[in-house]
Simulated scan of single mutants.
Amino acid sequence: MGNTCFGNILTPDGWCLGEIHWRDGRITGLVGEPVNPATNDHPRILPGFIDLHVHGGGGADAMQGAEALTTLARTHARFGTTSLLATTMTAPDAEVRDVLQAIATYMEAPPADAARVLGVHLEGPFINPGKLGAQPAHARAGTIAELDALCALAPIRLVTLAPELTGHHELIRHLAQRGIRVQLGHTLGSYEEGVAALGNGACGFTHLFNAMSGLHHREPGMVGAALAHADYAELIPDLLHVHPGAIRAALRCIPNLFAVTDSTAAAGMPDGEYRLGEQTVSKCLGGVRLADGTLAGSTLTMDQALRNLVAIGMTLADASDRLSRYPAAFLGLTEQGQLCAGALADLVVLDTQLNLKAVVIEGREILGESPCP
């Protein structure tokens, strides 16, 4: 592929047919004319995917440490993810500290052929024990002092917590003041508690609809708080976790709804048994479940998420925004999530059927059949 690619390029101003150029890891320019990509068979060139909720992939679980991080980051790069947040599981305190230190060590010298690890998504242990989903039973309330101690171990960018637990409104305010994003999830909180948490600085919802109090017309719950008030929320579009009709409802309500995989070690792997934190999960029929049948993360990859969103009626440009531009904006990333001069040269190339043909991370071709002259 070299340092240029030709095709239908999705820019911040819309589609153009032409060339995108990069040097030293950054986009140096785009040359082309406005186009409707449906009128030709040239490749579709999109910003690299940004996944803010990744537990594992390629048989490896993030809780297993630095070697596992290498495996999962390389695995997800093969499916178009150019940046991700390594996501922890609810676990005993010592284990959480150990994995944070491992992530920090990994980030000091990451491999060149893997998705960029932006930092940590701390999912638990500060969640409601009554809404664990597939999380192990180590949930509890957190304190400002211990969150500060954890943040000293690794760059925590995002925290999932249940706002109804004692002290968590103060904790949300503190994290927001530190510039750490807070999502509400694994929660039995009411609509009112969700709205109050947003007022205190929470800014998103973790795997919307899943592991939270649902919407009822007299008790709107946490889902109601999200649909009525959220600017951002993450959602798992594997079409198992959330029905397409519920996805469409969320799209009408939440302007910056974005996709995550919530992927486990089973992503990119055949059916069988895998680890998810301290638990064993089984991959079968495209899903991952605990022994009791509870959905336990997913096998989703971001390229499949894109195809799924298009399949339920979304335009390719809109679907791309929800895999790249919106998650980048949510984290405050200014050099990723869009194809324009000066941005990092993170891009994916797809054919007309949206099959992945090439992945470029900071100008390095990670995967590719060199479809671009």
Rank of each mutant, 00 (worst) to 15 (best):
L147V: 04
A154F: 04
E192K: 11
S190Y: 13
K131G: 04
G167D: 14
C151Q: 14
G133T: 08
H138L: 03
P136I: 06
H168A: 07
P125F: 03
I180C: 02
T160Y: 06
E123Y: 12
A141N: 07
Q135S: 08
F126I: 09
G189K: 11
E192M: 12
E170R: 13
Q135R: 02
G133L: 11
L175Y: 06
L132N: 10
A145G: 04
T143C: 02
L122N: 03
Q177A: 15
G167Q: 09
L153G: 01
C151H: 10
P125E: 12
L165Y: 05
A154W: 08
T166V: 13
L188V: 15
L153C: 03
F126A: 00
L153S: 06
L171S: 01
T166Q: 15
L175W: 06
P163Q: 09
R181F: 02
G133A: 12
F126K: 05
S190P: 14
I144F: 01
I172T: 05
G142Q: 00
H138M: 00
A162E: 12
Q183N: 14
P136F: 03
R178N: 05
H168Y: 04
G185H: 08
P163G: 06
G189R: 11
E123N: 13
V182P: 08
Q135E: 14
R157S: 01
A145E: 15
V182M: 01
A139K: 12
P125M: 10
A141R: 14
I144M: 02
S190Q: 12
A162W: 06
L175Q: 00
L150R: 07
H138D: 11
L147A: 00
P136Y: 00
E146A: 03
L122V: 11
F126L: 10
D148Y: 06
T187K: 05
Q183V: 15
V159N: 05
L150K: 03
R140I: 05
T143R: 00
A176Q: 10
A149L: 09
L165G: 09
L175H: 02
A139Q: 08
L188W: 00
I127N: 06
L188R: 09
A134L: 07
S190H: 15
H169D: 15
A176Y: 03
